[in-house]
């Protein structure tokens, strides 16, 4: 683990920011939807000792994630955040503690699904030449980053310091006014909603999906983009100031 990062926070990001993006993947990407569209309802629980717990539900061709894994068909226990993080980076193979009869779903559907996710989250230059792929991939990255902001603000020691300076209210982070996430701050705790809010106190808006992508890929400087107006900030800018400090740590965790 690098300096200034902790495994538990990374586990929360991996759970809700990475695996949680399967919700959107199945909705946005036909290739992903194809994998689960005929699947009978099934749920997979991820139980991380000393870390997060959540369940992915697959039903009617859709996927959704809920916190906790009290009632799931397949349960994957992890003895530590490090072990769970190993699942995400491919170095750990999980062994179910419940639901052995559903192993085939894990192997034949869930694993291919995560492969599609990886394809979109770590996109190749070639794939990105397709404008449809480009749009979907960038949108998914925005959702992952948006959720990661909340997880870092709620779990990472330095992130919590930043969050402690964010006043209550809604923050919009988005591409123009149609693709975006809402960060809700209440008593210095952050929650991400993966759609634009109706009303907000502060907003950080990218002028185009290309700007957002270039920023996510580290190809442009965020401050320069603000200076040129490619990223517009308005409203309670002090909220954004602290969100931006967390965003700096998102890059560290998701690198």
């Amino acid at each position: 683990m690098q300096n200034l990062m902790d495994a538990k926070t990374l586990a929360y990001i991996n759970m809700f920011g990475v695996l949680g993006t399967l919700e959107n993947l199945c909705e946005l990407v036909p290739e992903a939807n194809e994998i689960i569209k005929d699947q009978k309802p099934i749920s997979i629980g991820f139980d991380v000792k000393g870390g997060p717990a959540a369940t992915l539900f697959f039903k009617n061709g859709k996927c959704r994630m809920e916190q906790g894994c009290g009632a799931c068909d397949v349960k994957l226990p992890f003895s530590s955040p490090e072990k769970f993080n190993g699942l995400i980076d491919g170095t750990v193979t999980p062994i179910p503690s419940k639901g052995f009869t559903h192993i085939s779903f894990l192997l034949k559907k869930f694993t291919p699904l995560t492969d599609v996710l990886s394809k979109y989250m770590r996109a190749s230059e070639e794939d990105l030449k397709d404008p449809v792929f480009f749009e979907r991939s960038t949108r998914l990255m925005l959702y992952t980053i948006g959720v990661a902001i909340a997880q870092i603000g709620n779990n990472d020691e330095i992130g919590k310091f930043s969050a402690s300076h964010i006043i209550d209210g809604s923050i919009y982070i988005g591409i123009k006014n149609d693709i975006g996430v809402e960060l809700i701050c209440k008593d210095n705790r952050l929650v991400t909603v993966k759609k634009p809010p109706e009303k907000y106190r502060a907003a950080m808006i990218f002028d185009s999906i290309e700007t957002a992508r270039a920023l996510f890929d580290g190809k442009v400087n965020a401050l320069t983009c603000i200076g040129t107006g490619k990223i517009e900030m308005h409203g309670m800018v002090n909220m954004l100031d602290n969100v931006n400090r967390i965003l700096d740590r998102v890059a560290l965790y998701l690198a």
Binding site: A222, L223, T224, I226, G227, T228, G229, E232, M233, H234, V237, N238, L240, D241
Partner: peptide, 10 residues
Amino acid sequence: GPAEGQFIPV
């Protein structure tokens, strides 16, 4: 500079 939140919109 324009990124300090003092020039809105820049």
